[in-house]
């Protein structure tokens, strides 16, 4: 998948925080991701390659929402933030 989305119609801004950046393209935590149509959040995460099980907090357009909600979709120019289950340190 071309993560810079050249030639794609829709683009989603992705912020993978903490250890979730491990799963970003080139282990980058911030990037734009192309999608070819509006889709459920879970499908988008699967395409990006982020294991849903390791996402503790999810925000759509900076609003924290429940990741398991099947009605949640991502569309063009949306921003998604994925946070891992933060532990001590």
């Amino acid at each position: 998948m071309d993560c810079d989305g050249v030639g794609q119609a829709l683009r989603v801004k992705v912020h993978l925080w903490g250890e979730l950046g491990f799963y970003g393209p080139g282990k980058r935590g911030r990037f734009e991701f192309p999608i070819d149509h509006e889709m459920p959040v879970s499908d988008a995460l699967r395409l990006i390659g982020v294991p849903e099980a390791d996402v503790a907090v999810f925000a759509l357009n900076r609003e924290v929402v429940r990741l398991g909600d099947p009605t949640l979709t991502v569309a063009d120019d949306d921003r998604i933030d994925c946070f891992p289950p933060t532990s001590g340190g």
Binding site: G18, V57, D81
Partner: peptide, 9 residues
């Protein structure tokens, strides 16, 4: 790297 995630949670 923890700060933002804890804030979001």
């Amino acid at each position: 790297g923890l700060t933002d995630g804890l804030n979001a949670a």
